[in-house]
Design a protein around this nucleic acid. Structure first.
Lengths: 245, 245
DNA sequence: TGTGCTATTAATGTCAGACAAATAGAAACA
DNA sequence: TGTTTCTATTTGTCTGACATTAATAGCACA
């Protein structure tokens, strides 16, 4: 746990790196307490501000949490799936918006991954997951539902589908693909799409999951993908037409 | 862009959040310069240390970069796929090690996703991707190759496979699943596994990709998955046996 | 003896002010 | 014109102080 004083990198970066490596190597374990800021100052021979900036870097990655008061300090944080998912979605969203990922690419990735979950989902779905899916479908059919709420419900439906595969790792990895692309997709297509058509496909998917019919689910997901893609192309055409005129 | 002075959350957290939201909303765009630290102090009515801690939080997430000197400052960073991938792999690795994800879950998630890429990979693979795969297979066959190098080559092979799907979003999302689980899988199984068997499967996969034979690739990936799982079970049995004696 | 209040203490959070270092651009100079 | 020097601006680091929070030990009192 040393830093290189000759390096030109910022001290707080080096210190954050040193501590991060201890966490990843397992030297520092979950819920272990880090030395106090003052002790870290002595150890790394830097000022408290520098140590604090390093700790904030780690906190921003959810690697540590801090607590005030006597017997407080910085503790190695157990990375929860929820925290990690939130981060993952944020990053994925930014990645796509900043790099101007085209709709087709996002859509393709998203459905490819979601379809990979389908076989596991139909095998393991619980009554709970099924109920969530049905509830969301019901919501989607309510008249007067705002576009935004419809989007939210759409995300919740797909999340239930993914979660029903009963694999935390899979759910986490998919969150980035599904939840980050969904709003993008909704933004582009919700003006043009038919809720009835979506609800019909969602219902078929839920039925497939309920009856352990992997093929049906796969087929309907493919349809959903094709429909979404078709919509986006229509919207794009419409836009270029409007531009010309 | 305001913070709530009555909130009990740390100021630096609130400030980071405020700025992050501007980035996500698009008010601050890629390469835009943030106000200087002094200006941010004035705006949020906090001290410079607090502003700096907030900026470090954002920097830790690669949302901004900073530059010293006149006309320096903090700039909105374009999230590159590589940066994001690195982060994603780190987080995924920690998530799995901290939550003691069992091997079966990790393996299942990983191959489910990788198989989802196969159809696209066989369709779009370039000569480049194919060459990378062949090179890695060749490396894997070299006698005297260390276990570690074999692992690295294994990761490189699978990454080439995923990349050949020609979808950046997909590659990014898969990095977490493939690169984070691979070392775990290697650690557990490399003592017991047969390199010949792995190389044979890799070769079959490369052949399948070359000949646009999606079914073959899918089948061989399934075999690889089954073989890895089998190995891990043997290792587990071996261990429990040793424990008893 | 037990219980509730208080003082202590140790830790993080925030502030203020200073200097160091880097860097771009302006100014001076050859 | 090209080069060097100076200057202004901005981030990086240091120092020292005080505020806030929270556990704990000690004390007074029933």
């Amino acid at each position: 746990m040393k830093i290189d004083p000759t390096s030109k990198a910022d001290l707080s970066i080096q210190i954050a790196k040193a501590i991060r490596e201890e966490i990843m190597a397992g030297t520092l374990r979950v819920d272990d307490r880090l030395p106090s800021e003052t002790e870290l100052c002595d150890h790394f021979e830097v000022s408290r501000s520098t140590v604090r900036e390093a700790l904030k870097r780690l906190a921003a990655q959810n690697l540590i949490r801090t607590q005030r008061g006597a017997s407080g300090g910085a503790f190695v944080n157990r990375l929860s799936y929820d925290q990690a998912r939130g981060h993952h979605v944020t990053t994925s969203t930014l990645l796509m918006s900043m790099n101007e990922v085209d709709f087709k690419t996002a859509c393709e990735a998203r459905y490819a991954l979601e379809r990979a979950c389908a076989p596991l989902a139909v095998e393991r779905r619980t009554a709970d997951h099924l109920a969530t899916m049905r509830v969301e479908i019901f919501r989607q059919g309510q008249p007067g539902l705002s576009d935004e709420s419809f989007c939210d419900s759409d995300v919740a439906f797909h999340r239930a589908l993914v979660d029903s595969a009963g694999n935390h790792v899979l759910s986490y990895q998919l969150a980035g693909a599904v939840e980050a692309t969904q709003p993008l997709m909704n933004m582009i297509t919700f003006s043009a799409r038919s809720r009835e058509k979506i609800i019909e496909l969602h219902t078929a998917i839920a039925d497939g999951v309920e009856n352990h019919d992997a093929e049906l689910v796969d087929e309907k997901l493919a349809e959903l993908s094709a429909y979404t893609l078709q919509l986006s192309e229509n919207v794009a055409k419409e836009r270029s037409k409007r531009k010309q005129s």
